[in-house]
Design a protein around this nucleic acid. Structure first.
Ligand code: FES
Ligand code: FES
Lengths: 156, 156
DNA sequence: TTGAAATAGTATAAATAAGGTACTATATAA
DNA sequence: TTATATAGTACCTTATTTATACTATTTCAA
């Protein structure tokens, strides 16, 4: 209920790890999964998706791995989450199902539904909040960030 | 993913319906379920929970039903949702599971987890937003509200 | 006083989603 | 040519959500 899946958690961890690497440096799925005690297969699944979504770049073969394609400041929570879990929606249509239409469209067509509008608004507000949370912020807020970054030792 | 369940949807609909009734007036589960084409059993389940949580009052027996106990201004989205679905948490512990501890506690105990802090913060921000959304607001934003309310015909 | 209508409480089944695994194919460095 | 790594996809298992069912109790009213 109103929760992100573990996929997103794994994705965040992977992105944090990659963002901390020196420019152009690669990290393999195994490296990341080992570092945090996450199953290798799961980490691979997630990295494949992040790659397909254009968040990271992959290098195949021995000594291969992944590297960031964008600066951490330009990556936000909701984008990452949607890349891994599909489009976010607070609710499917509650009262009726309209055949042949996506749920977002259906909501607008059913004028009697008493909660379509409010749900849509709340959804937007959550989206706003989450799109304001950048990977850079997340990294600053991370327990282990000062272990590897150079400047903000006093950032608490 | 980051979505509320239908239970909450049914609960919202029920609360909206009850809030629109004249003071002290009752509505039965059947009345509400009929009005919106929702299964009677489901609506009953939800109303039982809303009653247990102190949102509504029940009157048993023939001619019985439910009525609001609190003004719509004092009811907020997250409270209602938690009454029906249990405490909201954005994520379970991702990297490890600590035996014998609730997940919220565990998060704080594992210092290595790179996302415990950020997740906690994002969770709080979402909670803030949702606790600012009152039932009264929701009712104003509802398509059919002007059909039954008296004053805000021009509220668009 | 009896029956119909309603809630209370609980248990369970069915459907869907999440979490996790496995396998084949392809690429690359050593 | 072998070991290591990603790509793509399919599948299985488990957990959650959704829906239903049943028994007990309360109350109105005929
Ligand atoms: S939520 Fe979409 S029609 Fe009610
Ligand atoms: S999310 Fe709780 S320990 Fe990482």
């Amino acid at each position: 209920m109103l929760s992100m899946t573990k996929k997103t958690g794994y994705g965040l961890i992977a992105m944090i790890h990659l963002a901390r690497l020196p420019e152009k440096k690669l990290a393999s799925a195994r490296e990341i999964s080992d570092a945090y005690g996450i199953s290798l297969s799961l980490m691979m699944n997630v990295l494949k998706k992040l790659c397909a979504a254009g968040y990271v770049e992959s290098v195949r073969g021995s000594r291969g791995g992944y590297r960031m394609l964008r600066p951490a400041e330009e990556i936000n929570f909701v984008g990452l989450m949607e890349a891994l879990e599909g489009p976010m929606k607070l609710a499917e249509c509650i009262t009726r199902q309209v055949e042949g239409l996506g749920s977002e469209m259906a909501c607008k067509l059913i004028s009697q539904c008493p909660i379509a509008n409010p749900i849509h608004r709340v959804n937007s507000r959550i989206r706003e909040v989450l799109s304001g949370v950048t990977l850079a912020e997340i990294i600053e807020d991370t327990a282990g960030s000062r272990l590897q970054s150079k400047s903000q030792t006093q950032k608490a």
